[in-house]
Design a protein around this nucleic acid. Structure first.
Length: 872
DNA sequence: CGGATCGAC
DNA sequence: CTATGTCGATCCG
């Protein structure tokens, strides 16, 4: 927004700090500063809001006091030393100064208000503001003369300006206009960076070069005469505004580069020929004029702009001649320093009310003072802060517009009139969770930490966060966490009621893009394959839902380990099948991205005659089938023939990194894929979105488990067994069993919170018999930690060396601390595709542990849970 | 990690 | 009556 930052007047007390005032131009209607302050004060004093402002102000003052005390203790010696250090950095920064870019900041003037005025001519001559009685988003310039500004509640604005018209927000409209503007901007920099609806940065460096050779015609724009007849008049004004003089028409670059064009924002009235087109030059100024011209022609709204060698300066430039003006800092060091010299620090983006006040306490108001005090600042502020200060005072800023990365959090919050009953609060909380879950789903995000935000009726804000071992994304999941947070807050104030005026819920701690791809793909594909196969194979009426919703009652938890034990007997050999499976199941090593396609192709196969080669996961023979139906039939036959063998565990590493399906280490001897609970919880969201059948899951994890885990043969009808076994089978082909670090990570977390979490994994203690992957002996254990300790000990014995040599395959470390970074991705690749020599190198360079480093690790830290897994 | 604060739009 | 909603960054414990 183009609202001018509050210039801190001399008022010493808090509230007025934020009530910035505009100059009251002579002869204009409006109020003077004093009057405005008085009115605001009267409207404010005594309110809960005001009391809170005072409190916050006190805190800032305390911070300042602390800082001043620190300052007192600083000796000259220290200061000198700091000076040297800082100046060293100054040198470096100065050397890195880059003036080669042309950055433009475009800022629509009083955007929302301007849009509303445009669409309702009645408002044109009136003071208006956009927002509500409780909060204004912006005001037009007329209203600003009364002290009506953005972030001011409407009722106070009304007191300042009784004639003020308050127009409600209409984001849809602003969004449309914003899009129109962006379409123009994209022509100058396809990578421009929008900042909200009304601002954007452009890097027009390249564009400028190109444009240099453009003929006039390419730079000619026509006045929009269609719009309204009334607009003709404006067009003439436009001509004036855009300084359409002879220079412009001659479009001589030389003439434009001189200073005359720098003053074009205050053009004198000229006699202009009536023209319906205009040619813009090739200089940066001309380009920006063109942009603004086109914006105005297209939207009938004006914009201000700044041109400078970096974003920070450009932003401040756009403010310089606002509204409807532009300003350029030429790409010369001196020009930059001149601009910055007397600039109040408050104008700098990033310097807000508090920082301004703190710096003011040190006698720093302008940027040159900021520079002069650099040594002191380096001793009083954090490194990040004083580095920033230094760059500001040198006029340095970023020269490239980095696209904002992935979002880090998503939240929703609501203000309301006091709510003080727990019941209402819970239901409100649920509602927020519902809204948030919906938004999360739109972006396919799941996060690990849930934050509850509360503002009590005294405007005191509290946030309470909790991070859970597995990502959440559904209403139920989020609410489950949020309600606890809310509960404890209610408890802490009890027996008094919790009196709040705002509640908010936020989810953060998303999986990184890498993790997400990795996880989602495999999960989605998995679900897809599972779903399709079920869809095809299960008798009518047997839906996923049934498989999913039936959970613990149908499959008691103890059975989980029963099955494990039973399975363990006959599969040790399976471990050694990998390589074969490797070669035979997958004809080509497609990236996992293809698996989505792959599965959908399989679906498509039913309708199309396309033949598809597929390897039967049971007999490992290639099958050319024209339909999934056919393939299934074959598999059924195979299964019937080799039922005893059941499904094989396929420890295959296919080339794609992402395409690994997670399973837990201790399940490695299982013949069936077992999804661990923490993982299941993660899957739940996807599960729900992918499968419409699945809903109202008290624990989607368990449903999932049931879907995946095959029951022992005898308990099932043959047909069912076939279905499920094949399901598992195929799934394993598509998503060969692997251990992911993520998994290990969750394992540990779950274990640590064993008592509180409803983890079922180690619940049946007597059944926890795990096979040590090192000594291959069964270990009866009550916790993963104990088991890991055993593995560590085994490793320490040096058995690993022997095994590694024998197996000629690297070992794997599951380091819970590095779990996020160490992709299980690249590992799969290495094991299958590369000779060991290469493997080792890659392992080391990517921070992965090879057998050697694993041993070291195991020795050096017992606290780390290392789980080794040997392939082949 | 959790909580508070700052700053921007 | 009546003082926003959302997001990222940073600092501190």
């Amino acid at each position: 927004m183009d609202d001018i930052k509050v210039d801190n007047t001399s008022c010493n007390d808090g509230v007025l700090l934020r009530m910035g005032l505009n100059d009251n131009k002579a002869g204009m209607q409006g109020l003077d500063k004093e009057k405005i302050n008085k009115i605001i004060m009267e409207a404010t004093k005594g309110s809960r809001f005001y009391e809170n402002e005072l409190k916050k102000d006190k805190q800032v003052n305390q911070r300042i006091e602390k800082m001043m005390q620190l300052k007192e203790k600083i000796t000259n010696q220290q200061l000198l030393k700091a000076q040297l250090q800082v100046d060293k950095l100054v040198m470096e920064l100065e050397q890195s100064r880059d003036l080669s870019c042309t950055i433009v900041h475009i800022d629509m003037d009083a955007f929302y208000a301007a849009v509303e005025m445009r669409d309702n001519p009645e408002l044109k001559e009136k003071p208006i503001a956009v927002g509500s009685m409780s909060m204004l988003s912006t005001s037009n310039y007329h209203a600003r003369r009364f002290g009506v500004r953005a972030a001011m509640p409407g009722f106070i604005a009304k007191k300042l300006c009784p004639h003020l018209t308050i127009v409600p927000l209409n984001f849809e409209k602003y969004g449309k206009v914003s899009k129109e503007v962006r379409e123009i901007l994209a022509e100058y920099d396809p990578n421009f960076m929008p900042m909200g609806l009304d601002e954007a940065y452009l890097n027009i460096t390249e564009y400028l070069e190109e444009r240099l050779n453009w003929p006039e015609d390419k730079r000619r724009y026509f006045f929009n005469t269609e719009n309204t007849t009334e607009n003709d008049k404006q067009d003439m004004n436009m001509s004036t505004k855009f300084n359409l003089n002879e220079d412009t028409f001659s479009s001589s670059p030389l003439l434009f580069e001189d200073n005359a064009s720098l003053t074009d924002d205050h053009p004198e009235q000229r006699n202009l020929p009536a023209v319906n087109s205009i040619v813009f030059g090739t200089s940066a100024e001309e380009v920006v004029k063109e942009i603004r011209f086109r914006i105005e022609q297209k939207t009938r709204l004006t914009a201000s702009a700044g041109i400078a060698p970096n974003t920070m300066l450009a932003k401040m430039c756009s403010d310089h001649n606002k509204p409807n003006g532009q300003y350029r800092i030429t790409p010369e060091r001196q020009a930059v320093l001149d601009f910055v010299k007397d600039l109040p620090i408050r104008k700098v983006p990033g310097i807000g009310k508090v920082t301004e006040k703190m710096l003011k306490a040190l006698g720093i108001v302008t940027c040159s003072e900021l520079y002069q005090q650099r040594a002191l600042l380096s001793l009083l502020f954090s490194e990040a802060s004083w580095h920033n200060f230094l760059e500001i005072s040198l006029g340095l800023g970023s020269t490239h517009l980095e696209k904002d990365g992935e979002r880090k959090s998503m939240s929703t919050e609501r203000t309301f009139s006091e709510i003080n009953t727990a019941e209402d609060q819970y239901s409100l909380c649920r509602e927020l969770c519902r809204d948030l879950a919906q938004e999360l789903q739109k972006e396919g995000l799941k996060g690990k930490t849930v934050t509850l935000k509360l503002k009590n009726v005294n405007f005191e804000v509290k946030t309470r966060a909790s991070t859970v071992p597995s990502s959440v994304s559904t209403e139920e999941e989020i609410f489950a966490v949020a309600k606890d947070l809310l509960g404890t807050e209610i408890d802490t104030v009890s027996p008094h009621p919790l009196r709040i005026r705002l509640m908010g819920v936020r989810v953060s701690g998303f999986l990184s893009e890498e993790e997400k791809k990795y996880q989602q793909r495999s999960i989605k594909s998995f679900l897809k394959s599972g779903k399709e196969i079920n869809f095809l194979r299960l008798e009518p009426g047997k839906s996923n839902q049934e498989l999913c919703t039936k959970n613990s009652e149908a499959a008691p938890r103890g059975s989980f380990f029963d099955k494990k034990r039973a399975a363990r007997q006959q599969n040790r050999e399976d471990l050694f099948l990998n390589e074969d499976v490797d070669k035979r199941v997958f004809h080509d090593r497609k990236s996992s991205a293809n698996f989505m396609e792959e599965t959908s192709k399989v679906t498509a196969m039913q309708n199309s005659a396309v033949h598809k080669i597929f390897t039967c996961p049971v007999c490992f023979e290639e099958q050319s089938s024209s339909s999934l139906e056919e393939l299934n039939r074959h598999i059924d036959e195979c299964l019937a023939g080799s039922l005893v063998k059941d499904t094989v565990e396929i420890l295959k590493n296919e080339s794609s990194k992402e395409n690994t399906f997670n399973s837990i280490p201790c399940c490695k001897n299982e013949n069936v894929e077992v999804c661990q609970k923490s993982n299941m919880d993660q899957l739940a969201g996807t599960c729900q979105s992918a499968s419409t059948d699945v809903n109202s899951a008290s624990s989607s994890a368990e449903k999932f488990t049931q879907m995946v885990v095959a029951k022992p043969h005898k308990e099932r009808q043959p047909s069912q067994l076939g279905d499920i076994a094949r399901n598992v089978c195929i799934k394993q082909c598509l998503f060969p069993k692997r251990i992911s670090l993520e998994n290990a990570d969750h394992l540990e977390k779950i274990e640590n919170t064993e008592e509180t979490s409803s983890s079922c994994f180690f619940e049946a203690k007597e059944d926890n018999v795990l096979v040590c992957p090192v000594c291959n002996l069964e270990q009866k254990t009550t916790s993963l930690m104990l088991f890991n300790r055993h593995v560590d000990i085994c490793l320490n014995k040096g058995i690993i060396q022997e095994l590694t040599e024998k197996n000629n395959c690297p070992t794997k470390t599951y380091d819970t601390e590095n779990s996020n970074r160490v992709g299980s991705l690249s590992r799969g690749q290495q094991c299958t595709n590369q000779s060991q020599g290469t493997k080792r190198k890659l392992d080391e360079s990517s921070g992965l542990a090879t057998s050697q480093s694993v041993s070291k690790k195991a020795k050096s830290s017992n606290s780390k849970h290392t789980i080794e897994m040997f392939f082949k």
